[in-house]
Design a protein around this nucleic acid. Structure first.
Length: 485
DNA sequence: GCGATCAGAT
DNA sequence: CACATCTGATCGC
């Protein structure tokens, strides 16, 4: 996931590279293994190169999505029947053997580079002659096919989250998942004891002092394992607000839709994978299907989610809910900016956004007031985030208390400042025995959360305000790079 | 000349 | 809106 991934996207100390496939970017070592967490375009850089010929580990859904991937321009040509066949960006990753007229099968040039592993299925993979790891996949609640990787081997046990939405139900389900349970921290919470205090924060999983003292728990602790590192989705790590869980976002938008006449047509701007919960929620609430375009239909029909398969239709006249091509909508949901017909004036446009929980409740109340007062509202928002903000990330990391946290992405111009900042954010969520690798300081730990709220805004650049020394960040980066070997 | 990569805008 | 995507410029074999 370039740019700005630490260690060139390698999961150190293993020769495993995640979500980056280009070889030109000044890396000297060829990875022993490639992994793909999901198919959003910033995670598949380099995979479209025709010269790429390595094995890639991913989920079955990600494999289907990748092999059916079409860029917008080619989808458009195909839909206008200017192209007679689909141009699929990654078709070189799977080439079927050919069968000649005499029935003989020719394997020359055939390949199937995407190795799909089912979820919750520990799988032994050879990295080299004398090194093997066990890889287990977990759904990451980010988009269809998106997974986390648990990598276990002689050089350590590492969880790579890919992109992640760790809502509380998600963390609770992990705690109960026997394939990762042994890595869950059984101790008392230390995080939030100082510095970070989120009023609405609900610790869900920690044992009490009494239960820790019980025989069962002491026995369990013998087999408790510790994650050496979590490679964490830090896309929204500088957002400190709590955001609604997906269910609250979906029920909110359903409540608003219900206030319109039952004939009002809606266009749902699913502009990238990951908004399926909105489509499913609407379909269930209004007992109807959602119209989608040829490309989305083809992909959704091949995914493992049976409910998703059932709620989509290609019949644009059969429903008032449309999630067809954003720039080529069907005739039932024309764009008001392009067409000033009576029909176009009736269309209501639903757009997913990232919004704090408090703002979402205000927005819902205000919009409901407008609609009930007869005001015309043609644009609706739905507060559905596909990445966890800081409170969720802290709860997630605190669940495991790993030895280290490595950000999956950094902002290059900050020169490592954000890395140091992230280290401080999670210092109370890592394992007690871990070295506090950063120098003791009074930056974050002695300040109260009002300082943090004032300091950390959604703008990543603001992180620099933390008065951290630039060379300190550099030093930290180098130290971590070294300890990762 | 083309594909691959990058910067910039939406 | 969004941190994913598209576009057009640039690089490089």
């Amino acid at each position: 996931m370039p740019p700005g991934s630490p260690y060139n996207s390698f999961v150190l100390p293993y020769s495993i590279r995640v979500d980056e496939f280009s070889s030109s970017s000044s890396i000297s070592t060829v990875p022993a293994l490639h992994m793909l967490s999901h198919t959003h375009s910033d995670h598949i850089v380099g995979l479209s190169a025709k010269s790429f010929s390595s094995i890639v580990i991913c989920s079955q859904d990600a494999k289907e999505m990748l092999l059916r991937h079409e860029v917008y321009y080619e989808r458009s040509l195909r839909d206008q029947e200017i192209r007679s066949e689909c141009v699929r960006t990654f078709k070189h990753l799977k080439v079927e053997p050919t069968v000649s007229q005499d029935g003989q099968v020719h394997y020359q040039g055939s390949r199937d580079l995407l190795k799909a592993i089912p979820l919750h299925t520990p799988t032994v993979i050879e990295l080299s002659n004398d090194e093997q790891v066990t890889v287990t996949l977990f759904d990451a609640n980010h988009c269809p096919g998106a997974v986390m990787f648990l990598i276990e081997g002689p050089k350590g046990n590492i969880l790579h989250t890919g992109d992640l939405r760790a809502e509380s139900w998600f963390i609770e389900s992990l705690i109960r998942n026997p394939f990762i349970q042994r890595y869950v921290d059984p101790g008392l919470p230390r995080a939030f004891s100082k510095g970070f205090k989120f009023a609405d924060y609900i610790p869900v999983h920690h044992a009490t002092q009494e239960s820790l003292a019980s025989i069962e728990c002491r026995l369990a602790c013998r087999t408790r394992r510790i994650l050496d590192a979590i490679y964490l989705d830090t896309a929204s790590v500088f957002s400190i607000s709590l955001v609604p869980d997906k269910q609250a976002a979906v029920t909110g938008i359903i409540d608003l839709i219900a206030l319109y006449p039952p004939t009002t047509p809606f266009f749902i701007n699913s502009w990238t994978w990951g908004y399926e919960d909105i489509l499913k929620g609407i379909a269930a609430a209004f007992n109807c299907q959602i119209h989608v375009d040829r490309y989305k239909y083809g992909v959704y029909q091949r995914l493992s989610d049976p409910f998703m398969r059932d709620i989509i239709t290609r019949n644009e006249a059969s429903t008032r809910f449309h999630a067809c091509e954003r720039f080529d909508r069907c005739k039932y949901v024309p764009d008001i900016r392009e067409e000033r017909s009576e029909r176009a004036k009736e269309v209501v446009y639903i757009n997913p956004v990232t919004m704090a929980g408090s703002a979402w409740h205000q927005y819902l109340a205000e919009t409901k007031r407008k609609l009930e007062g007869g005001e015309k509202v043609t644009h609706l928002l739905v507060a559905l985030s596909r990445h966890s903000p800081l409170p969720e990330l802290m709860q997630f990391v605190n669940t495991f208390k790993p030895r280290r946290v490595v950000p999956n992405t950094l902002t290059a111009p900050l020169g490592g400042l954000d890395w140091l900042c992230i280290e401080k954010m999670f210092q109370d969520c890592i394992h007690l025995d871990s070295d506090q690798s950063s120098p003791p300081d009074a930056q974050l730990s002695t300040r109260d959360d009002s300082f943090i709220k004032d300091t950390l805004t959604d703008d990543v650049g603001e992180a620099a305000i933390l008065n951290l020394e630039g060379d300190g960040a550099q030093e930290t980066a180098e130290r971590w790079a070294e300890s990762g070997k």
